[in-house]
Amino acid sequence: MKALSTNILTNAAFELMADGALAAGTYNSLADCPKGVWVTVGQMQSNSAFGEQDPAVSQRMKELGFLPGARLKIIGYGLFGSDPLAVQINGTKFALRRAEARKISVSPL
């Protein structure tokens, strides 16, 4: 019983730490963002996972509004492994995968 409550406490402490880390803005891309937190989009980064497609993917993402200064929030995850993720940006919702999320640098609002 005691062990269990300690465990819960530890978890709570971890969550607090996670929140603190957020406030400090230590995550580098949308892929590291927690759900439900508004962030500001920064520059589009390249992701080698897309290979030759990468510039076209960047172009399309920019066209859809993933541009510096836009406000964005993760609103949900698909089945298994938090991939894909659903985001809200400029009053529109999009589903994208972690690979695309890694291209979007973000900073706290």
Binding site: A49, Q53, V57, R60, M61, L64, K93, F94, L96, A99
Partner: peptide
């Protein structure tokens, strides 16, 4: 396989 994005609008 090349990777292609999902980028699906949720209307």
């Amino acid at each position: 396989r090349d990777t292609y994005p999902l980028l699906l609008e949720l209307p």
